[in-house]
Write a protein that binds this DNA or RNA. Structure first.
Lengths: 342, 342
DNA sequence: TTGTAAGCGTTATCAT
DNA sequence: ATGATAACGCTTACAA
């Protein structure tokens, strides 16, 4: 392995000068040229570990998400990588699989390797005292981390869910059910809350308990919950789906039993990727996934750079973003899109 | 920052003993307990940079993909992370955005930080002599890297494309056009070749040049190419789409102009994510995305662990995988799925 | 501007 | 089984 000593020798300078060349410190043009020539000749690449050990900083940030195959988290990650790269940081990716235990493992693996951590907590009991204690800042994204004093960037889940549900009421549906994610997952809890509020505002009372289901954030979860809901003696005439996968499962189930989605309301909180058709009647509330990621990355970089004020909490509105993939609906439908944004 | 010296002092042992405890070397039970207690009390986490510097190895592998927001590459990445984690490695993620220059930047940034690199080359002129020269193994995935002697794992693109196109002919379509990715992107080239062969086998001669378009691997690319194709004096009656995004663009365009997909053939090489509806007439050839990732990771780990035989090249068949998200089609359709696998 | 030299926190070699 | 100690490759005072 070629080191700065090899380069220095070949260029006829001291190791310090080589280091300076690669760090932008002032060096005479002649020596700089010699160093660069020598480095190129020897194929020298600085040893990142040595550099980081010496400088005590890491230039890597960890991103821990529950599901790398969900376009929502993928868009979020894209936001992070863009900001990180622009600041000279690399991104280390971890898939927590919605498992608090796996998340904890990944966090402790990351500490000692990274300059900071961006995590979508898999549980409202997640504890980040380990990295925090080591001086590694943490930013929670998409979901709160109530037990730890960390910066937070989340979407306005209650408002988004409430608006989405209200939209179904406005469309004339009466019995709007809710299929949300697991208990103790913050986004899932808040989306139920939004649904509940819309219901109360509409009818002046709480919704029937049997109309609300909590399932994994998966297609199958949405499918099965929908099946179960439709077996009720008084089934719903519309479903508020807590995320995109659940929405797909719901639609899959409804189509499977031959239901026409123009007569049955479905709303997805969160956009669908690469959508070919938006079925008639499907309403989509867009979540600012990429912005969540960029904002989280910006806040993390501030912390890394020494910002020490008390934790901040930012709530991003569910923005009016025209989904470039969502308008492949039939022409007559395109004229009056049902796509709904808060 | 707590170091092994702090722990050693508190536990009344030498730093070496602390190191041994954390590396599984034999230590008396009493001392081990003391060390662990002290470490826990102080919140000690080993410094990865120091360890890696000393050991000369990194426990991190870089994954460089062209588009983190494409479910195909996301599934591939998932495969890599699973294998990597099982072996105690972390994954560093880079988005090359299909840009050879950006890819080169990410590669040189990764060298010196990682134990190995898995990359989907953005160009058939990609050169990996830098990492290779530094002893950092590289595995090319999804696409070949003909200029560098690296291990390769790819799908059988020619066969997949050929079979897909043949399927359209079998369905009775006559003028099957091809919309593939950019020139010099290997998968795009090979998929054109597969289409060409199917055409030749069907008609005994080469396809008309104007029936083949090369565009970016994007929805818009597929949309625009389709529009252009349909303006031909003799337009196609079916389209072979070189990847999932292009397929979505093609379908979007066709639906936009009011075409019924039961009368027009479209085949996508590569699955669609979270698909709500499979339009009648849409054929999907599945690519073994996750397997590509796991295999690439396995081969890379072998190299990292000292395997020094000549470069290997593995071609994965486009497997018979029933896409769990792709069967939400109308019931009568589900009975005779058009989903096609090679 | 340039060189010398002292660490950064760990592991591994050598004694004990 | 345990402890002292010398690297690993780099950055950065401090000198010159």
């Amino acid at each position: 392995m070629t080191t700065i000593y090899d380069v220095a020798q070949r260029a006829g300078v001291s190791p310090a000068t080589v280091s300076r060349v690669f760090n932008g410190t002032k060096v005479s043009a002649a020596k700089e040229a010699a160093v660069r020539a020598a480095a190129a000749h020897l194929g020298f690449v600085p040893n990142g570990n040595a550099r980081r050990l010496r400088m005590g900083s890491s230039q890597i940030i960890a991103v821990l998400i529950p599901d790398i195959e969900n376009s929502y988290f993928t868009a979020l990650t894209r936001g992070v990588t863009d900001v990180a790269r622009a600041a000279g940081y690399s991104v280390m990716l971890g898939n927590t699989d919605e498992s608090p235990q796996l998340e904890a493992e990944l966090v402790s693996a990351a500490v000692g390797d990274v300059a900071g951590i961006i995590v979508a907590p898999t549980s409202d009991t997640a504890d980040y005292s380990l990295p925090l204690g080591r001086g590694v800042p943490v930013v929670a994204v998409d979901r709160d981390a109530p037990l730890s004093k960390v910066d937070v960037v989340v979407a306005d889940n209650v408002a988004g869910a409430m608006d989405a549900t209200q939209r179904l009421f406005e469309l004339g549906f009466q019995r709007v059910a809710c299929v949300s994610g697991p208990e103790h997952v913050m986004t899932a809890d808040l989306r139920v809350e939004g649904w509940r509020r819309a219901w109360e505002q509409r009818f002046g009372g709480p919704p029937p308990a049997e109309l609300c289901r909590r399932v994994p954030y998966t297609v199958d979860g949405g499918d099965e919950a929908t099946a179960s809901l439709m077996r009720l003696s008084e089934p719903p005439d519309a479903i508020f789906a807590g995320n995109n996968r659940i929405a797909v499962g719901a639609v899959r189930n409804l189509i499977g039993v031959g239901l026409d989605l123009s007569d049955f309301g479905v709303v997805s909180l969160g956009e669908l990727p690469l959508t070919l058709y938006m079925p008639r009647g499907l309403v989509v509330t867009h979540l600012p996934a990429r912005e969540l990621g960029t904002r989280a990355a910006e806040m993390l970089l501030e912390r890394i750079n020494g910002y020490i004020e008390p934790p901040r909490r930012e709530v991003l509105a569910t923005v009016v973003t025209h989904d470039q993939h969502a308008f492949a609906m039939a022409p007559e439908r395109a004229a009056t899109p049902l796509t709904y944004t808060t």
